[in-house]
Every structure is written in C-alpha cells, then in structure tokens.
C-alpha cells in the first residue's frame, strides 16, 4: 500500500467503519443504560426533579472553594486538557472543513497558532496527568489498564495531529493518514472505554441533581 493509498483508505472505508462502530456503540451503550429504567419516587416531593437535574448538569462543572482547594490538581489539569482538546477538535480550520463535508455544517475557526498552542498545552496537561496517575497513591490504587488505554487513545491524536501539522519525521500524507487512523482507533474504542463518560456524564449529573432536587437540595 502506497502512502496515498493508505491515506485514501483511512479517509474512505476506514473512516466509515470507525464512524459506524462509534455511532452504533454509543447508541447501544446509552440504550443499555436507559432501558434499565428507574422506579418512580413515591415520597412527597420537596423540590423539582427536572430542575434539580438540569441545574446539576451545569453546576457540577463548578466546585465550591474548599473542594477546589482539596482537589486542585485534578480540577485544573482536567479543565486545561478538556478545554484544549475540545477547542482543537472543533475549532481547527481543517477539522471544520471535514465536519462540513460530513455533516454539511460549518462554523468559524480559531487562528491556527492558537490551536497549535492549545494542542501543546493539552499534551503537557495529559503528560502531567499520567505522571500523577503513576505516582499518586489514590490513583495508583484506582488504576486499571482501561485508564491507560483511555489516556493513550486521547493523547495519540493530539500528538499525531501536531506532528502532521508540523510535518515532523515522515512524508506529509503518511503523517496525516496516521493522524486520521489514530482518531479512528479512538472512535472505535470510545463506546467501550471510560471515554464514554463524555456522553453518560450528562445522564449521571442529571440523575444526581434529580435525586437531590427532589429532596430540595441543590447538588
């Protein structure tokens, strides 16, 4: 397979396979949660379940001062890498072109040097996160192979994207193909790893807020 054939494959069949597995997988995972259902609460309500749930979806991204101080590293590093990652996925001009091709929608992009910086910041944040995961005693206790896999799946597209953009080491088409392939591997494994939290956290936050909201507590 030549480098151009490789690029064509990841852009064509490879991408289609990955997209189908990703979409089907995410739908299956969400359905297998929702179809379990939950019992109706028979206690007299003290507040609104719906409002409580919606409130917690938003407020759980903001912690009180004492909690922030206790878990500062987790919160700050988490914020940095998530922000950098999401902005570089959705606001890099070539990515927006790709979205336009697939979904027919486009939006303004961020300047390339900004995306470049964001990618580097995200990579650094992810490196500090893995360093902590390997050294902190709570993390070491919690760690599973799945944690390392999810980390690897997340950092690889950032690194390969950075390399492709700066043409480091290999011919440009090969670098781009590797970058796209790394995203496809991410998409394929996404529904079956803890990356799934990107979807389910909204459900989890809603349930948490609904349970508390019903009792009149803003959680």
């Amino acid at each position: 397979m030549s480098e151009i054939e490789f690029l064509d494959w990841v852009r064509g069949p490879g991408f289609q396979i990955a997209a189908v597995i990703f979409v089907a997988g995410v739908i299956i995972r969400i359905l297998e949660i929702l179809m379990l259902g939950r019992k109706k609460n028979l206690a007299e309500a003290r507040g609104s379940e719906m409002l409580g749930g919606l409130r917690t979806i938003v407020t759980r991204s903001m912690h009180d001062k004492a909690t922030f101080q206790r878990s500062a590293f987790t919160i700050v590093s988490g914020y940095i890498f998530h922000t950098g990652l999401l902005l570089s996925i959705f606001f890099f001009a070539p990515h927006i072109l790709m979205f336009k091709e697939v979904f027919g929608l486009s939006w303004p992009s961020l300047p390339t040097p900004v995306i470049d910086a964001l990618a580097v910041i995200s990579i650094i944040a992810l490196l500090t996160i893995i360093a902590r995961r390997m050294s902190n005693k709570v993390m070491r206790f919690l760690n599973t192979p799945g944690d390392y896999l999810a980390w690897l799946l997340t950092i690889t597209p950032l690194v390969t994207g950075y390399m492709a953009f700066h043409r480091i080491g290999l011919p440009a088409p090969t670098l781009l193909a590797i970058h796209i392939l790394s995203v496809e591997i991410l998409l394929v494994l996404f529904p079956f790893t803890k990356l799934m939290h990107a979807f389910t956290l909204f459900m989890a936050r809603w349930y948490n807020g609904a349970i508390s909201g019903y009792r009149g507590v803003a959680s």
Binding site: T74, A150, H197, M203, A204
Partner: peptide, 9 residues
C-alpha cells in the same frame, strides 16, 4: 458506573 473516570476526587 459508565461515567466514572477514576479521577479520585
């Protein structure tokens, strides 16, 4: 359980 990311908070 689907959402836990093992953050340790």
């Amino acid at each position: 359980f689907s959402s836990c990311v093992h953050c340790g908070m």
